[in-house]
Simulated assay, not measured.
Amino acid sequence: MRPLTLWRYEARRAGWAALLGPPIAVALGVAAALANPLPGDTNTARILLGGLEMAVPLAAGVACASLVGRDPATEIQLTAPTPYRVTLLRRMAVTLGWTAAVAVLTAAVLIATGWWSRWPANHGVLAGQLTWAAPAVGLSGLGFAAGAVFRSPAAAGALVTTLWAIQQFFAGLAQEHLPGRLLYLFATTRGTVPGDWTANRLALLAAGIAFTGLALVVLRRPERLINEEDE
């Protein structure tokens, strides 16, 4: 199979959630900014950047949580020369690549229109891309690992959305101690302890990579997926 054809196929197998999730997340962020009842450019900029930091990573995390278990005949997949975990990793790469493309384009528009700089805690043009990249990698890795462990897209997606909601509604509790601050998803738009932002972003990236590694270890025995179907 030609490389382009292979990646197009993996994009289709990743599902509509992976393809439509990030654009819809951006659209919801823009709609929220337009409907913002609070006056002032700073509040509007915060909502626009919040769409990148909150909605886009959630869409990526839920999409990655649905990757394991999408194949209707896993036993056939196991006979292919390419290990199943490598196939799933390609689909995760497609999901994150598309998410990154949408997020970078959105960030470029915000930078060009001046909305990026109107949020005081934007952290610049380059480092500021960690606003969306760090939580997207963190939640995607968590979703991918949960899918491999639970063998259920629904359960994995529920774990991702539950963690997201807990940090959204209990931000104060999440930031009371250093571990919570380091793994807080919304440090750019909802704040964190001064000086903790860079460590927070790096910790989320590291957590996402670690979760992805865990998923690949679990998927070294993909026959567990077949056993689950037979039970």
Rank of each mutant, 00 (worst) to 15 (best):
M1G: 15
L6R: 15
Y9W: 12
A11M: 09
G15D: 00
A17Y: 13
P23G: 14
P23F: 13
A25C: 04
A25V: 01
V26M: 07
V26T: 09
V26L: 12
V30M: 09
A33L: 01
A35D: 14
G40H: 10
T44C: 11
M54E: 15
M54I: 13
L58D: 03
A59M: 05
C64I: 07
G69Q: 01
D71E: 15
I76C: 15
T79E: 06
T87Y: 08
R90I: 08
R90Q: 12
M92W: 04
G97M: 08
A101T: 12
V104W: 13
W116D: 02
A127K: 11
G128E: 03
L130H: 06
A133K: 01
V137K: 05
S140G: 04
L142M: 10
R151I: 07
A158K: 00
A158T: 15
A158Q: 09
T162H: 04
I166S: 02
Q167D: 01
F170Q: 12
A171H: 07
L183S: 02
L183C: 00
L185W: 00
R190D: 13
T192C: 06
V193D: 15
P194K: 10
A199Y: 09
L202W: 05
F211Q: 05
T212G: 01
V218P: 11
L219N: 05
L219K: 08
L225P: 10
N227C: 09
E231D: 14
